[in-house]
Design a protein around this nucleic acid. Sequence first.
DNA 1: TAGTGGTCTAGACCACAAG
DNA 2: TTGTGGTCTAGACCACTAA
Lengths: 212, 212
Amino acid sequence: MREIQEGRWAEGARFPSDQELTSRLGVSRMTVRQAVSELVNDGFLRRDHGKGTFVTRPRALRRFWTVISFTEEMRSRGLEVQNKLLGVRRVIPPGPIRKALRLGPGERVLQIRRIRAVHGQPIAYNVSNIPLSRCPDLDRCDLEEDSLYLIIQNRYGYRITRGDRAYRAAKPSRAEAALLGVAPGDSVLVVEGATFVDREVPIDYCYEVYRE
Amino acid sequence: MREIQEGRWAEGARFPSDQELTSRLGVSRMTVRQAVSELVNDGFLRRDHGKGTFVTRPRALRRFWTVISFTEEMRSRGLEVQNKLLGVRRVIPPGPIRKALRLGPGERVLQIRRIRAVHGQPIAYNVSNIPLSRCPDLDRCDLEEDSLYLIIQNRYGYRITRGDRAYRAAKPSRAEAALLGVAPGDSVLVVEGATFVDREVPIDYCYEVYRE
DNA sequence: TAGTGGTCTAGACCACAAG
DNA sequence: TTGTGGTCTAGACCACTAA
């Protein structure tokens, strides 16, 4: 009973209710719901409790926020994210990071090390480096609770406009393997790069290791 | 009835059968199946028809290939991709692209323009620039059928090792809006950058516009 | 053959939204 | 109050797998 397909419905149009499909197709309601659920999962329909079922444009497959922010990417997939703070320090960054952030020789950054977990399983190890001159007293915020980029935008009034990322497959260091719960020989995905606000001002240089 | 959670099962271990859960928890089988289906969808369990249900490690949320290759990313989500070839030309690339690809002044690239579609809906506009010196006669391959990066690896023996990408939200050009079927004022995601093989040799400079 | 998952039935009660 | 989706029941038959 899978003959319900997308027949060029207009976006936002009302889709037949469970009851209507049940009687029209002569199948039981559980069967209807299962078929409709597939279309909902594929992003063609949206159910509103008490209101009805509606045709929706298939959700965008990539959006600026979902590629730039780990938290947003996971949420867009309907997964809950836990951030575990490993450490927060004010440090003078190494040369390449200083360069990428366009900082003067003595300027310090806030180095934030975190483990991102989904369903309690560690997924990624993340190090962010944020210039203190651009986000003063960032270490007074609740960095464990919510999206770092949300804080940067809401508390400091920046607008994040661009993200540069380099992707490569690699072997984790011993410490990274231990943090992610993988074998040292396993392959991991390393993502690295700067995030920019407003007029091309770098606000973060992040280094991430994803379990693969 | 959602009290079935992940209780640190070993990977590959057998999960209780529907029947066993039904009698053990005192609920009906449809209820059990719905709860188990959620765990299957979230990647914690795998069902094998006739064999049983097994614990599986949650699938990786980001892998090198799924962030580097559009085709692979869509396939990993269980979606079918269609590539529509708009045009293939041998051209001398503009300065910034020539620089990113580390080409000499007169060297030519194969410019490949494509529309990527999922479920018949256009999702992205993509322009790849591939040095002909590194992939001679690439225009003789079937570029519509399959993954460009698969061809580069299989036919030319390269191993793709790194991808650099810059992400930004933008407004589409009039031509891009028309190709993607969006309004000119809508926001789109622009992705741009080089892909590298082996010893940091750039093999592609791609420019992509995603519907948002 | 016995056990598993895949699908389906014909009901039921509930929570939510709108008139 | 009515109609909607969310959840659940207690069965049933089928296809697949392995002994």
